[in-house]
C-alpha cells in the first residue's frame, strides 16, 4: 500500500466569470469524489486556509472568484490523476464537455 501513496500539487487560475459558485463547486466536488486520494484546496489569492476538496460547503467558502489562484493538492494512490483532472476542470473554465460529464 505505502508504495502506491503519492502526493501531487498544482496551482491553477479560476477563469470562468462567475468563479466557484454553486454549479462549478459541485462539478469540482463530484469530480474530486471520484478519486480515492484526499483532495485539499487553498485559495492562495486570499489566504492560507486549506479546505476539503470533496466538501460542497467548504469549497464554497473559498470565495474563489474569477482571477483567484487555487492550489490543488492530493494525497493517495491516484493523487496525480486527481490533480490533473481537477486542474483541467478549473483551467478550462469548467468546460465540462472536454473534462467531465456529470450525471
Amino acid at each position: 500500500m505505502t508504495d502506491t501513496q503519492s502526493e501531487a500539487v498544482r496551482d491553477v487560475t479560476v477563469l470562468n466569470k462567475e468563479g466557484l459558485h454553486a454549479r462549478p463547486v459541485m462539478y469540482f466536488v463530484d469530480l474530486a469524489s471520484k478519486y480515492n486520494s484526499k483532495v485539499s484546496v487553498t485559495n492562495i489569492s486570499r489566504g492560507e486556509e486549506k479546505v476539503d476538496g470533496k466538501s460542497a460547503m467548504e469549497m464554497m467558502l473559498l470565495e474563489a472568484t474569477q482571477g483567484c489562484v487555487l492550489r490543488i493538492e492530493a494525497c493517495g494512490e491516484d493523487a496525480r490523476e486527481a490533480v490533473d483532472a481537477l486542474a483541467a476542470l478549473v483551467g478550462t473554465g469548467f468546460n465540462t464537455k472536454t473534462v467531465h460529464q456529470p450525471e
Binding site: A22, R23, V25, M26, V29, D30, D52, K54, A56, E58
Partner: peptide
C-alpha cells in the same frame, strides 16, 4: 434545478 444541486451537495458533504 441547479439551485438545489448544491443543497444536495452540502447534505452529502461528509465533513459537514
Amino acid at each position: 434545478a441547479n439551485v438545489f444541486v448544491w443543497h444536495i451537495g452540502v447534505l452529502t458533504d461528509e465533513q459537514l
